[in-house]
Design a binder for these strands. Structure first.
Lengths: 236, 236
DNA sequence: TGATCTTTTGTACGATAGTACAAATCACAT
DNA sequence: ATGTGATTTGTACTATCGTACAAAAGATCA
Protein backbone atom coordinates (compact mmCIF):
# COMPACT_ATOMS: atom_id res chain seq x y z
CA UNK A 1 0.00 0.00 0.00
CA UNK A 2 1.59 3.20 -1.21
CA UNK A 3 0.49 6.44 0.33
CA UNK A 4 1.37 9.96 -0.50
CA UNK A 5 3.92 11.40 1.89
CA UNK A 6 2.54 14.12 4.11
CA UNK A 7 4.27 17.44 4.47
CA UNK A 8 5.88 16.19 7.67
CA UNK A 9 8.03 13.74 5.76
CA UNK A 10 8.94 15.64 2.65
CA UNK A 11 12.34 17.09 1.90
CA UNK A 12 13.90 18.98 -0.92
CA UNK A 13 16.46 16.41 -1.83
CA UNK A 14 15.71 12.74 -1.47
CA UNK A 15 16.24 12.23 2.24
CA UNK A 16 19.04 14.56 3.07
CA UNK A 17 18.74 13.44 6.67
CA UNK A 18 19.67 9.91 5.66
CA UNK A 19 22.56 11.16 3.54
CA UNK A 20 23.99 13.02 6.51
CA UNK A 21 23.63 9.95 8.73
CA UNK A 22 25.37 7.75 6.18
CA UNK A 23 28.20 10.21 5.63
CA UNK A 24 28.72 10.68 9.35
CA UNK A 25 28.74 6.95 9.93
CA UNK A 26 31.35 6.42 7.27
CA UNK A 27 33.58 9.26 8.40
CA UNK A 28 33.33 8.49 12.10
CA UNK A 29 34.04 4.82 11.46
CA UNK A 30 37.22 5.50 9.53
CA UNK A 31 38.63 8.58 11.25
CA UNK A 32 37.18 8.64 14.72
CA UNK A 33 34.76 11.10 16.25
CA UNK A 34 37.00 14.02 17.04
CA UNK A 35 38.91 14.03 13.79
CA UNK A 36 35.76 14.61 11.79
CA UNK A 37 34.15 18.03 11.75
CA UNK A 38 30.49 18.79 11.19
CA UNK A 39 31.59 20.61 8.07
CA UNK A 40 33.34 17.47 6.79
CA UNK A 41 30.14 15.49 7.25
CA UNK A 42 27.99 18.10 5.59
CA UNK A 43 30.37 18.30 2.66
CA UNK A 44 30.45 14.53 2.21
CA UNK A 45 26.65 14.42 2.29
CA UNK A 46 26.30 17.32 -0.11
CA UNK A 47 24.55 19.31 2.57
CA UNK A 48 25.00 22.58 4.36
CA UNK A 49 26.59 22.58 7.82
CA UNK A 50 23.51 24.28 9.21
CA UNK A 51 21.43 21.39 8.00
CA UNK A 52 23.21 19.05 10.37
CA UNK A 53 22.35 21.29 13.28
CA UNK A 54 18.76 21.42 12.11
CA UNK A 55 18.28 17.67 11.98
CA UNK A 56 20.41 16.53 14.92
CA UNK A 57 20.95 19.62 17.02
CA UNK A 58 24.52 18.72 18.08
CA UNK A 59 27.37 16.53 16.91
CA UNK A 60 26.72 14.21 19.85
CA UNK A 61 23.08 14.07 18.82
CA UNK A 62 24.15 12.90 15.40
CA UNK A 63 26.23 10.10 16.88
CA UNK A 64 23.37 9.14 19.17
CA UNK A 65 20.99 8.87 16.24
CA UNK A 66 23.41 6.61 14.37
CA UNK A 67 23.41 4.25 17.34
CA UNK A 68 19.64 4.40 17.68
CA UNK A 69 19.27 3.45 14.07
CA UNK A 70 21.38 0.33 14.28
CA UNK A 71 21.24 -1.07 17.81
CA UNK A 72 17.64 -2.23 17.70
CA UNK A 73 17.67 -4.10 14.38
CA UNK A 74 21.07 -5.61 15.08
CA UNK A 75 20.07 -6.93 18.48
CA UNK A 76 16.84 -8.25 17.03
CA UNK A 77 18.69 -10.19 14.37
CA UNK A 78 21.06 -11.58 16.95
CA UNK A 79 18.16 -12.71 19.13
CA UNK A 80 16.56 -14.52 16.21
CA UNK A 81 19.76 -16.28 15.25
CA UNK A 82 20.51 -17.10 18.88
CA UNK A 83 17.07 -18.62 19.37
CA UNK A 84 17.59 -20.76 16.29
CA UNK A 85 21.06 -21.76 17.46
CA UNK A 86 19.76 -22.88 20.84
CA UNK A 87 17.52 -25.40 19.10
CA UNK A 88 20.53 -27.23 17.66
CA UNK A 89 20.81 -30.54 19.51
CA UNK A 90 24.44 -31.53 19.09
CA UNK A 91 26.48 -29.56 21.61
CA UNK A 92 29.44 -29.00 19.31
CA UNK A 93 27.21 -27.83 16.47
CA UNK A 94 25.24 -25.66 18.84
CA UNK A 95 28.34 -23.88 20.08
CA UNK A 96 29.33 -23.07 16.54
CA UNK A 97 25.81 -21.88 15.74
CA UNK A 98 25.78 -19.62 18.78
CA UNK A 99 29.12 -18.07 17.90
CA UNK A 100 27.91 -17.58 14.36
CA UNK A 101 24.75 -15.92 15.62
CA UNK A 102 26.92 -13.44 17.46
CA UNK A 103 29.35 -12.78 14.65
CA UNK A 104 27.26 -12.72 11.50
CA UNK A 105 25.02 -9.75 12.31
CA UNK A 106 28.09 -7.72 13.16
CA UNK A 107 29.52 -8.18 9.68
CA UNK A 108 26.43 -8.29 7.53
CA UNK A 109 23.60 -6.00 8.34
CA UNK A 110 21.84 -5.73 11.66
CA UNK A 111 19.65 -3.67 9.47
CA UNK A 112 20.10 -2.69 5.88
CA UNK A 113 19.87 0.90 6.92
CA UNK A 114 22.46 2.69 4.86
CA UNK A 115 24.28 -0.40 3.72
CA UNK A 116 25.84 -2.88 6.04
CA UNK A 117 26.35 -3.55 9.71
CA UNK A 118 30.10 -3.89 9.23
CA UNK A 119 30.35 -0.13 9.05
CA UNK A 120 28.40 0.29 12.25
CA UNK A 121 30.42 -2.39 14.01
CA UNK A 122 33.59 -0.67 12.95
CA UNK A 123 32.16 2.56 14.26
CA UNK A 124 31.55 0.90 17.62
CA UNK A 125 35.11 -0.36 17.66
CA UNK A 126 36.51 3.09 17.01
CA UNK A 127 34.26 4.77 19.56
CA UNK A 128 35.20 2.22 22.17
CA UNK A 129 38.89 2.84 21.50
CA UNK A 130 38.41 6.60 21.79
CA UNK A 131 36.55 6.18 25.05
CA UNK A 132 33.64 8.19 23.68
CA UNK A 133 31.19 8.88 26.48
CA UNK A 134 28.01 8.97 24.43
CA UNK A 135 28.89 5.66 22.84
CA UNK A 136 29.99 4.08 26.10
CA UNK A 137 26.67 4.74 27.78
CA UNK A 138 24.41 3.59 24.98
CA UNK A 139 26.53 0.52 24.32
CA UNK A 140 26.54 -0.65 27.92
CA UNK A 141 22.79 -0.31 28.25
CA UNK A 142 22.01 -1.75 24.83
CA UNK A 143 24.43 -4.61 24.35
CA UNK A 144 25.11 -5.94 27.82
CA UNK A 145 21.84 -7.89 27.86
CA UNK A 146 22.69 -9.43 24.51
CA UNK A 147 26.20 -10.23 25.66
CA UNK A 148 24.88 -11.98 28.75
CA UNK A 149 22.45 -13.99 26.66
CA UNK A 150 25.28 -15.19 24.46
CA UNK A 151 27.55 -15.93 27.38
CA UNK A 152 24.79 -17.99 28.98
CA UNK A 153 24.15 -19.85 25.75
CA UNK A 154 27.82 -20.65 25.33
CA UNK A 155 28.06 -21.71 28.94
CA UNK A 156 25.23 -24.18 28.36
CA UNK A 157 27.23 -25.78 25.59
CA UNK A 158 30.34 -25.89 27.75
CA UNK A 159 29.10 -26.56 31.28
CA UNK A 160 32.50 -27.68 32.51
CA UNK A 161 34.12 -24.30 31.76
CA UNK A 162 33.85 -21.64 34.48
CA UNK A 163 31.72 -18.67 33.55
CA UNK A 164 34.68 -16.37 34.12
CA UNK A 165 36.62 -18.08 31.37
CA UNK A 166 33.64 -17.80 29.03
CA UNK A 167 33.48 -14.07 29.70
CA UNK A 168 37.15 -13.62 28.93
CA UNK A 169 36.94 -15.61 25.73
CA UNK A 170 33.85 -13.82 24.51
CA UNK A 171 35.67 -10.58 25.24
CA UNK A 172 38.53 -11.78 23.06
CA UNK A 173 36.02 -12.65 20.37
CA UNK A 174 34.65 -9.13 20.34
CA UNK A 175 38.14 -7.70 20.24
CA UNK A 176 39.12 -9.91 17.33
CA UNK A 177 35.90 -9.01 15.56
CA UNK A 178 36.48 -5.31 16.04
CA UNK A 179 40.07 -5.45 14.92
CA UNK A 180 39.20 -7.39 11.79
CA UNK A 181 36.93 -4.55 10.78
CA UNK A 182 39.33 -1.80 11.81
CA UNK A 183 42.44 -2.90 9.93
CA UNK A 184 41.52 -5.57 7.38
CA UNK A 185 44.45 -4.46 5.23
CA UNK A 186 46.85 -5.80 7.85
CA UNK A 187 45.68 -9.33 7.10
CA UNK A 188 46.27 -8.84 3.40
CA UNK A 189 49.70 -7.41 4.08
CA UNK A 190 50.90 -10.09 6.50
CA UNK A 191 49.58 -12.91 4.33
CA UNK A 192 51.47 -11.37 1.41
CA UNK A 193 48.30 -11.05 -0.60
CA UNK A 194 47.17 -14.61 -0.08
CA UNK A 195 44.21 -13.57 2.04
CA UNK A 196 41.83 -10.67 1.63
CA UNK A 197 41.17 -9.08 4.99
CA UNK A 198 38.21 -7.23 3.55
CA UNK A 199 36.38 -10.40 2.48
CA UNK A 200 33.63 -10.55 5.07
CA UNK A 201 32.56 -14.12 4.36
CA UNK A 202 36.09 -15.40 4.80
CA UNK A 203 36.68 -13.30 7.89
CA UNK A 204 33.54 -14.74 9.45
CA UNK A 205 34.59 -18.33 8.76
CA UNK A 206 38.08 -17.77 10.12
CA UNK A 207 36.75 -16.01 13.17
CA UNK A 208 34.09 -18.61 13.93
CA UNK A 209 36.51 -21.48 13.50
CA UNK A 210 39.17 -19.93 15.71
CA UNK A 211 36.72 -18.77 18.34
CA UNK A 212 34.93 -22.09 18.71
CA UNK A 213 38.29 -23.71 19.37
CA UNK A 214 39.15 -21.01 21.89
CA UNK A 215 35.92 -21.59 23.79
CA UNK A 216 36.62 -25.30 23.84
CA UNK A 217 40.03 -24.84 25.40
CA UNK A 218 40.44 -26.45 28.82
CA UNK A 219 39.43 -24.29 31.76
CA UNK A 220 42.19 -22.07 33.03
CA UNK A 221 42.27 -23.42 36.59
CA UNK A 222 42.89 -26.97 35.55
CA UNK A 223 45.20 -26.17 32.67
CA UNK A 224 47.62 -23.62 34.07
CA UNK A 225 48.62 -25.06 37.43
CA UNK A 226 51.98 -26.76 37.15
CA UNK A 227 52.89 -26.45 33.52
CA UNK A 228 54.59 -23.11 33.75
CA UNK A 229 54.92 -20.32 36.19
CA UNK A 230 53.03 -17.12 35.61
CA UNK A 231 55.58 -14.86 33.91
CA UNK A 232 54.43 -11.65 35.57
CA UNK A 233 53.94 -13.22 38.97
CA UNK A 234 57.07 -11.78 40.51
CA UNK A 235 55.10 -8.74 41.68
CA UNK A 236 52.00 -10.60 42.81
CA UNK B 1 80.51 5.44 37.41
CA UNK B 2 78.71 8.67 38.15
CA UNK B 3 79.60 11.68 36.09
CA UNK B 4 78.50 15.26 36.31
CA UNK B 5 75.84 16.02 33.72
CA UNK B 6 76.96 18.38 31.01
CA UNK B 7 74.99 21.45 30.11
CA UNK B 8 73.38 19.55 27.29
CA UNK B 9 71.45 17.35 29.67
CA UNK B 10 70.45 19.66 32.45
CA UNK B 11 66.97 21.04 33.01
CA UNK B 12 65.31 23.22 35.58
CA UNK B 13 62.81 20.71 36.75
CA UNK B 14 63.74 17.05 36.90
CA UNK B 15 63.22 15.97 33.31
CA UNK B 16 60.30 17.98 32.15
CA UNK B 17 60.70 16.37 28.77
CA UNK B 18 59.95 12.96 30.27
CA UNK B 19 56.97 14.32 32.17
CA UNK B 20 55.47 15.62 28.95
CA UNK B 21 56.03 12.29 27.20
CA UNK B 22 54.41 10.38 30.04
CA UNK B 23 51.44 12.71 30.22
CA UNK B 24 50.93 12.60 26.47
CA UNK B 25 51.16 8.84 26.44
CA UNK B 26 48.53 8.52 29.14
CA UNK B 27 46.15 11.04 27.60
CA UNK B 28 46.50 9.75 24.05
CA UNK B 29 46.00 6.17 25.21
CA UNK B 30 42.76 6.93 27.00
CA UNK B 31 41.19 9.65 24.87
CA UNK B 32 42.68 9.31 21.42
CA UNK B 33 44.97 11.65 19.56
CA UNK B 34 42.56 14.30 18.35
CA UNK B 35 40.60 14.64 21.57
CA UNK B 36 43.70 15.70 23.47
CA UNK B 37 45.12 19.17 23.01
CA UNK B 38 48.71 20.23 23.47
CA UNK B 39 47.47 22.41 26.31
CA UNK B 40 45.89 19.39 28.01
CA UNK B 41 49.20 17.57 27.85
CA UNK B 42 51.17 20.53 29.13
CA UNK B 43 48.75 21.01 31.99
CA UNK B 44 48.89 17.33 32.98
CA UNK B 45 52.69 17.45 32.93
CA UNK B 46 52.83 20.69 34.90
CA UNK B 47 54.50 22.37 31.97
CA UNK B 48 53.89 25.32 29.74
CA UNK B 49 52.33 24.72 26.30
CA UNK B 50 55.29 26.38 24.68
CA UNK B 51 57.54 23.84 26.30
CA UNK B 52 55.95 21.08 24.27
CA UNK B 53 56.71 22.93 21.08
CA UNK B 54 60.25 23.46 22.23
CA UNK B 55 60.96 19.79 22.91
CA UNK B 56 58.95 18.11 20.16
CA UNK B 57 58.26 20.83 17.63
CA UNK B 58 54.78 19.56 16.69
CA UNK B 59 52.03 17.40 18.13
CA UNK B 60 52.84 14.71 15.57
CA UNK B 61 56.46 14.93 16.62
CA UNK B 62 55.43 14.21 20.18
CA UNK B 63 53.53 11.11 19.10
CA UNK B 64 56.46 10.01 16.99
CA UNK B 65 58.83 10.31 19.92
CA UNK B 66 56.52 8.18 22.09
CA UNK B 67 56.71 5.45 19.47
CA UNK B 68 60.46 5.77 19.13
CA UNK B 69 60.83 5.38 22.86
CA UNK B 70 58.92 2.13 23.05
CA UNK B 71 59.17 0.26 19.76
CA UNK B 72 62.82 -0.64 20.02
CA UNK B 73 62.89 -2.05 23.56
CA UNK B 74 59.61 -3.86 23.07
CA UNK B 75 60.71 -5.55 19.88
CA UNK B 76 64.00 -6.45 21.49
CA UNK B 77 62.26 -8.12 24.40
CA UNK B 78 60.01 -9.98 22.03
CA UNK B 79 62.97 -11.22 20.04
CA UNK B 80 64.67 -12.51 23.17
CA UNK B 81 61.56 -14.32 24.36
CA UNK B 82 60.90 -15.68 20.89
CA UNK B 83 64.42 -17.02 20.61
CA UNK B 84 64.04 -18.76 23.95
CA UNK B 85 60.64 -20.12 22.95
CA UNK B 86 62.02 -21.61 19.76
CA UNK B 87 64.40 -23.73 21.83
CA UNK B 88 61.50 -25.55 23.49
CA UNK B 89 61.44 -29.08 22.12
CA UNK B 90 57.88 -30.22 22.69
CA UNK B 91 55.73 -28.74 19.91
CA UNK B 92 52.73 -28.06 22.13
CA UNK B 93 54.86 -26.39 24.77
CA UNK B 94 56.72 -24.45 22.13
CA UNK B 95 53.51 -23.05 20.66
CA UNK B 96 52.46 -21.81 24.06
CA UNK B 97 55.88 -20.32 24.68
CA UNK B 98 55.81 -18.50 21.35
CA UNK B 99 52.36 -17.04 22.02
CA UNK B 100 53.53 -16.01 25.45
CA UNK B 101 56.58 -14.34 23.96
CA UNK B 102 54.28 -12.28 21.79
CA UNK B 103 51.78 -11.38 24.51
CA UNK B 104 53.85 -10.76 27.62
CA UNK B 105 55.92 -7.78 26.39
CA UNK B 106 52.72 -6.08 25.28
CA UNK B 107 51.31 -6.16 28.80
CA UNK B 108 54.37 -5.79 30.92
CA UNK B 109 57.05 -3.45 29.81
CA UNK B 110 58.89 -3.55 26.53
CA UNK B 111 60.88 -1.04 28.45
CA UNK B 112 60.27 0.37 31.86
CA UNK B 113 60.29 3.81 30.37
CA UNK B 114 57.56 5.71 32.15
CA UNK B 115 55.95 2.67 33.68
CA UNK B 116 54.56 -0.17 31.67
CA UNK B 117 54.16 -1.37 28.14
CA UNK B 118 50.43 -1.86 28.66
CA UNK B 119 49.93 1.85 28.29
CA UNK B 120 51.90 1.95 25.07
CA UNK B 121 50.07 -1.08 23.69
CA UNK B 122 46.79 0.57 24.51
CA UNK B 123 48.02 3.67 22.75
CA UNK B 124 48.78 1.60 19.67
CA UNK B 125 45.28 0.12 19.81
CA UNK B 126 43.68 3.52 19.95
CA UNK B 127 45.84 4.97 17.20
CA UNK B 128 45.09 2.03 14.96
CA UNK B 129 41.36 2.51 15.56
CA UNK B 130 41.60 6.19 14.74
CA UNK B 131 43.51 5.44 11.57
CA UNK B 132 46.29 7.80 12.65
CA UNK B 133 48.71 8.24 9.77
CA UNK B 134 51.86 8.82 11.79
CA UNK B 135 51.18 5.70 13.83
CA UNK B 136 50.20 3.61 10.83
CA UNK B 137 53.49 4.23 9.08
CA UNK B 138 55.78 3.65 12.00
CA UNK B 139 53.85 0.57 13.08
CA UNK B 140 53.94 -1.07 9.67
CA UNK B 141 57.67 -0.56 9.29
CA UNK B 142 58.52 -1.46 12.88
CA UNK B 143 56.25 -4.35 13.76
CA UNK B 144 55.68 -6.18 10.50
CA UNK B 145 59.04 -7.92 10.74
CA UNK B 146 58.27 -9.02 14.26
CA UNK B 147 54.83 -10.20 13.24
CA UNK B 148 56.28 -12.26 10.42
CA UNK B 149 58.81 -13.81 12.76
CA UNK B 150 56.04 -14.87 15.12
CA UNK B 151 53.83 -16.14 12.34
CA UNK B 152 56.73 -18.22 11.03
CA UNK B 153 57.47 -19.59 14.48
CA UNK B 154 53.85 -20.54 15.01
CA UNK B 155 53.70 -22.11 11.59
CA UNK B 156 56.67 -24.29 12.50
CA UNK B 157 54.77 -25.61 15.48
CA UNK B 158 51.69 -26.23 13.36
CA UNK B 159 52.98 -27.30 9.95
CA UNK B 160 49.66 -28.78 8.90
CA UNK B 161 47.83 -25.45 9.17
CA UNK B 162 47.95 -23.17 6.12
CA UNK B 163 49.87 -19.97 6.62
CA UNK B 164 46.79 -17.96 5.75
CA UNK B 165 44.94 -19.38 8.72
CA UNK B 166 47.88 -18.60 10.99
CA UNK B 167 47.82 -15.00 9.79
CA UNK B 168 44.12 -14.66 10.52
CA UNK B 169 44.45 -16.19 13.96
CA UNK B 170 47.41 -14.05 14.89
CA UNK B 171 45.40 -11.08 13.74
CA UNK B 172 42.61 -12.14 16.08
CA UNK B 173 45.16 -12.46 18.85
CA UNK B 174 46.30 -8.89 18.40
CA UNK B 175 42.70 -7.69 18.30
CA UNK B 176 41.88 -9.53 21.50
CA UNK B 177 45.03 -8.19 23.11
CA UNK B 178 44.23 -4.63 22.12
CA UNK B 179 40.64 -4.84 23.24
CA UNK B 180 41.62 -6.27 26.62
CA UNK B 181 43.69 -3.18 27.21
CA UNK B 182 41.14 -0.74 25.82
CA UNK B 183 38.10 -1.77 27.86
CA UNK B 184 39.17 -3.99 30.76
CA UNK B 185 36.15 -2.77 32.73
CA UNK B 186 33.85 -4.63 30.36
CA UNK B 187 35.27 -7.94 31.57
CA UNK B 188 34.63 -6.99 35.17
CA UNK B 189 31.09 -5.88 34.31
CA UNK B 190 30.10 -8.94 32.30
CA UNK B 191 31.59 -11.34 34.82
CA UNK B 192 29.57 -9.52 37.50
CA UNK B 193 32.70 -8.74 39.45
CA UNK B 194 34.06 -12.26 39.43
CA UNK B 195 36.96 -11.33 37.17
CA UNK B 196 39.14 -8.26 37.16
CA UNK B 197 39.72 -7.13 33.60
CA UNK B 198 42.55 -4.93 34.76
CA UNK B 199 44.56 -7.77 36.25
CA UNK B 200 47.34 -8.11 33.70
CA UNK B 201 48.65 -11.47 34.87
CA UNK B 202 45.20 -13.02 34.67
CA UNK B 203 44.48 -11.42 31.32
CA UNK B 204 47.71 -12.86 29.95
CA UNK B 205 46.90 -16.38 31.13
CA UNK B 206 43.39 -16.24 29.73
CA UNK B 207 44.61 -14.84 26.45
CA UNK B 208 47.42 -17.35 26.03
CA UNK B 209 45.20 -20.28 26.88
CA UNK B 210 42.44 -19.22 24.49
CA UNK B 211 44.84 -18.29 21.71
CA UNK B 212 46.82 -21.50 21.79
CA UNK B 213 43.57 -23.41 21.38
CA UNK B 214 42.55 -21.13 18.53
CA UNK B 215 45.82 -21.77 16.70
CA UNK B 216 45.36 -25.50 17.17
CA UNK B 217 41.93 -25.47 15.57
CA UNK B 218 41.65 -27.53 12.41
CA UNK B 219 42.52 -25.75 9.20
CA UNK B 220 39.64 -23.90 7.63
CA UNK B 221 39.72 -25.71 4.28
CA UNK B 222 39.29 -29.12 5.79
CA UNK B 223 36.88 -28.06 8.50
CA UNK B 224 34.37 -25.82 6.77
CA UNK B 225 33.49 -27.67 3.58
CA UNK B 226 30.17 -29.43 3.97
CA UNK B 227 29.14 -28.68 7.52
CA UNK B 228 27.32 -25.44 6.80
CA UNK B 229 27.00 -23.03 3.98
CA UNK B 230 28.81 -19.72 4.12
CA UNK B 231 26.19 -17.34 5.50
CA UNK B 232 27.14 -14.33 3.40
CA UNK B 233 27.93 -16.27 0.26
CA UNK B 234 24.91 -15.08 -1.70
CA UNK B 235 26.91 -12.24 -3.19
CA UNK B 236 30.06 -14.16 -3.88
C1' DT C 1 80.81 37.77 38.51
C1' DG C 2 79.61 37.88 33.93
C1' DA C 3 79.06 35.50 29.37
C1' DT C 4 76.75 31.92 27.11
C1' DC C 5 73.73 28.34 26.25
C1' DT C 6 69.52 25.71 27.41
C1' DT C 7 65.05 25.67 29.00
C1' DT C 8 60.71 27.75 30.43
C1' DT C 9 57.29 31.27 30.25
C1' DG C 10 53.90 34.34 28.38
C1' DT C 11 51.50 35.92 24.74
C1' DA C 12 49.75 36.25 20.17
C1' DC C 13 48.30 34.81 15.53
C1' DG C 14 45.69 32.56 12.02
C1' DA C 15 42.78 28.56 11.31
C1' DT C 16 39.11 25.91 12.41
C1' DA C 17 35.89 24.04 15.65
C1' DG C 18 30.64 23.63 17.18
C1' DT C 19 26.67 25.98 17.11
C1' DA C 20 23.04 29.68 16.54
C1' DC C 21 19.95 32.18 13.70
C1' DA C 22 17.76 34.98 10.14
C1' DA C 23 16.77 34.77 5.36
C1' DA C 24 15.79 32.10 1.38
C1' DT C 25 13.67 28.16 -0.69
C1' DC C 26 10.84 24.35 -1.28
C1' DA C 27 6.48 21.13 -1.11
C1' DC C 28 1.94 20.98 -0.60
C1' DA C 29 -2.99 22.01 0.93
C1' DT C 30 -6.34 25.09 0.00
C1' DA D 1 -2.13 31.16 -7.07
C1' DT D 2 -1.05 31.66 -2.60
C1' DG D 3 -0.26 30.92 2.15
C1' DT D 4 2.00 27.84 5.42
C1' DG D 5 5.08 24.99 7.56
C1' DA D 6 9.25 22.20 6.81
C1' DT D 7 13.82 22.40 5.20
C1' DT D 8 18.08 24.41 3.41
C1' DT D 9 21.29 28.14 3.00
C1' DG D 10 24.50 31.62 4.32
C1' DT D 11 26.78 33.82 7.71
C1' DA D 12 28.47 35.05 12.11
C1' DC D 13 29.85 34.35 16.89
C1' DT D 14 32.74 32.58 20.40
C1' DA D 15 35.97 29.12 21.85
C1' DT D 16 39.79 26.55 21.21
C1' DC D 17 43.13 24.57 18.32
C1' DG D 18 48.40 24.06 16.85
C1' DT D 19 52.17 26.74 16.55
C1' DA D 20 55.51 30.71 16.60
C1' DC D 21 58.42 33.78 19.01
C1' DA D 22 60.40 37.16 22.08
C1' DA D 23 61.48 37.72 26.76
C1' DA D 24 62.57 35.71 31.32
C1' DA D 25 64.87 32.36 34.10
C1' DG D 26 68.09 28.93 35.11
C1' DA D 27 72.45 26.45 34.58
C1' DT D 28 77.45 26.17 33.36
C1' DC D 29 82.06 27.59 33.01
C1' DA D 30 85.66 31.17 32.19
Amino acid sequence: MVRKPTSKETARKPNMREAILAAAEELFATNGFNAVSVRDIAHAAGANPGSVTYHFKTKDGLLLEIYRRHCGPMNLRRSELLAAAKRVRDLQDRLEAVVRAYVVPAFTSGSDLAGGGARFTRLRAVMSAEGNEVARKIIAQTFDDTSHAFIDAIHESLPHIPRTDIVWRSHFLLGALYYSLVTPDRVSRLSRGEADGGDAANAIEQLVQATVAAFQAPALDQAAPARRRTPASSKT
